[in-house]
Structure formats: structure tokens, C-alpha cells
């Protein structure tokens, strides 16, 4: 095995302003690994929704936390691992939002996670110690 690249690891604070830094990191990875705009924008959406969820619900008001992203690729797929030390949350459980019910009754609470799953090829969760770990893959 002769890896031609190293995994990319970056850490964001639990602050929505960090979404700009997430986009910058993905832009850097796009150039480094020569990925397409389409793949990166879809991956951005997946990671944004998971990150936003962790920042919004994972930590007590005012508590500081960090979210770690590790990205790698092999053959024709990207693999991303995201971990945080917030409250236990399994994003594989929330149900898909009902998309065809009347507007007045529409619940959009689960929409972000729904989109994250739609744009991933595999999507797994595990709790290890005090950490939530989500692993997802996306084909090129």
C-alpha cells in the first residue's frame, strides 16, 4: 500500500460562523485532490447540516466545544469522519420529513439531517465514550 495522499484533519469551534471556514477547507481539499465543484458543494451541504445540528443542539448554552473532521479518499469514494463531545445524538434515527403534506402542517425539523443523508452514499453513527462519531462516504 502506498498512499499518495494524507488524510486531511481540521477542527471547528461550536460556532455557526465557522461555516465559512468549513467552506474554505472544502475549497482547499477540492484543489488538492482535484474534485469537482458539484461533489464539493454536495459534501459541503452534508457537513454543514451535521455541523449546524451539533452546534445548535449538542452543547449547553454557552458551553464551548470542538468538532473534528477527518477526510480521506480511496478509489472512487470520499470518506469523512466527524466527531464531537456533545450530547448523544444519532442522526441515523430521525425520520425523513414528510415532503408531501400540506404546507401548514409541514414540520421541517428533520430537514437538515434528511438532506445530509440524501447526499451521502453511506451514513453511520456510533457513540464512543463521550463522543458522537459519524462516518459517511460519498462516491465521486
Amino acid at each position: 500500500m502506498s498512499p499518495r495522499h494524507k488524510p486531511v484533519r481540521f477542527v471547528l469551534n461550536n460556532d455557526l460562523c465557522e461555516l465559512d471556514r468549513l467552506a474554505q477547507m472544502l475549497d482547499m481539499i477540492k484543489k488538492k485532490w482535484r474534485l469537482t465543484d458539484k461533489l464539493i458543494i454536495q459534501l459541503n451541504l452534508v457537513l454543514d447540516e451535521l455541523f449546524t445540528n451539533i452546534v445548535s443542539y449538542g452543547y449547553a448554552e454557552g458551553a464551548k466545544g470542538q468538532i473534528t473532521f477527518i477526510m480521506d479518499f480511496e478509489d472512487d469514494e470520499l470518506r469523512v469522519t466527524i466527531h464531537d463531545s456533545g450530547k448523544p445524538f444519532d442522526p441515523t434515527i430521525p425520520e425523513s420529513p414528510a415532503l408531501d403534506i400540506p404546507l401548514g402542517d409541514k414540520h421541517v425539523g428533520g430537514l437538515g439531517i434528511f438532506l445530509a443523508r440524501q447526499y451521502s452514499d453511506t451514513f453511520d453513527y456510533r457513540r464512543e465514550g463521550n463522543r458522537n462519531i459519524v462516518t459517511l462516504t460519498k462516491k465521486f
Partner: peptide, 16 residues
């Protein structure tokens, strides 16, 4: 060029 569920929510709220 980019919208997430947070943007969709604003649009939906406006529609309602």
C-alpha cells in the same frame, strides 16, 4: 450558489 436547510426554512416561513 449554496443553500442549506436553514435557507429553505426562511423561504418556507415566508411562504406561510
Amino acid at each position: 450558489e449554496y443553500i442549506s436547510s436553514a435557507g429553505l426554512r426562511v423561504v418556507l416561513k415566508t411562504v406561510k
